[in-house]
């Protein structure tokens, strides 16, 4: 096996609070090839912070420390902000949760997608426009000419998220972090958006980190799964081996998932005492 795309050892994220510093991510380690990795956990489990610390986008007063944080041979931990910026978007990118908030309300969709490419590869306006339209088509938007000139408030949530994907993939990065990419969307368009991500990631041979609270969804779209709880990785397994998971937290999550052929009267609730001692 060649060197992994991303390798992280002992990553910790700390935020100061009036009651002293709180570790939201507590010394986690994992590595990632050109594969699809799922990170699952409840809100507050530190999964989003993990995603953002890879991009070094934790704002002060938050603090990130790690023994190792290497992306494709580049040591992220010691990288200057200037060099890091050249990496962001171009090589590591992130799709965020809600297009309602993550798209700039006063720039047209086309401008925002174009900016992502132009920042790293300056090119003539006409050529840029062509690339933007091409990308919009790749995320299955009809009438890209029209949509490119719309403002974010004029597109639906599902379309907004596809715009977001187009924007994050247009510079052809090697790693895409998708942070709850569908939780703000209608159930009816969730699968469509994930299929697009899946298709483009496979086609470009990229690495994907899919962050979600939805165990079923992650199991369907990922090769490997990390389960996080309280800032720690409590379980790591291949997606197909999920039903063999041993940690009580994962078992609890699995048990709480409703099934199509449901025969239980009541879904079990997580019993937190089972792992609280660990």
């Amino acid at each position: 096996m060649t060197a992994p795309l991303l390798s992280i050892k002992n990553l910790t994220v700390t935020f100061p609070t009036p009651k002293g510093p709180v570790e939201v991510v507590r010394g986690i380690s994992f590595s990632l090839g050109r594969e699809r990795l799922g990170i699952v956990g409840e809100s507050g489990s530190g999964k989003s912070m993990t995603g953002r610390s890879i991009l070094k986008l934790i704002r002060p007063p938050g603090r990130v420390t790690a023994d190792e944080m290497v992306f494709d041979g580049i040591d992220l931990a010691s990288l200057r902000e200037r060099r890091m910026r050249a990496l962001r978007g171009a090589r590591i990118s992130m799709v965020m949760q809600d297009p309602k908030f993550s798209l700039n309300p006063v720039m047209t969709v086309g401008e925002q997608i174009g900016e992502a490419l132009k920042t790293h590869r300056p090119m003539p306006r006409r050529q840029l426009r062509a690339r933007v339209l091409e990308m919009l088509e790749a995320v299955r938007i009809n009438e890209p000419e029209r949509v490119a000139d719309l403002y974010p408030h004029e597109v639906s949530g599902g379309m907004g998220q596809r715009v977001m994907i187009a924007m994050m993939l247009i510079p052809e990065p090697d790693l895409l972090i998708a942070d709850e990419p569908t939780s703000a969307l209608d159930v009816s368009v969730q699968a469509q958006v994930l299929d697009i991500i899946d298709e483009l990631v496979r086609r470009n041979g990229m690495g994907l980190i899919l962050i979600s609270h939805d165990l079923g969804l992650v199991a369907r779209y990922c090769d490997r799964i990390l389960v996080m709880n309280g800032g720690e990785i409590v379980e790591e397994c291949a997606a197909r081996d999920l039903d063999k998971a041993r940690h009580p937290y994962t078992r609890g999550l699995l048990a709480a998932m409703p099934r199509m052929d449901e025969d239980r009267d009541e879904l079990p609730v997580l019993d937190r005492s089972a792992w609280a001692a660990t």
């Binding site: 991009l55 986008l57 978007g89 171009a90 990118s93 908030f101 993550s102 700039n104 992502a116």
Partner: peptide
């Protein structure tokens, strides 16, 4: 503190 400012940073846009 808006999310779209973070988006811009994710894209690698200069500060």
């Amino acid at each position: 503190s808006q999310e779209y400012v973070t988006t811009a940073r994710v894209k690698g846009v200069p500060e």
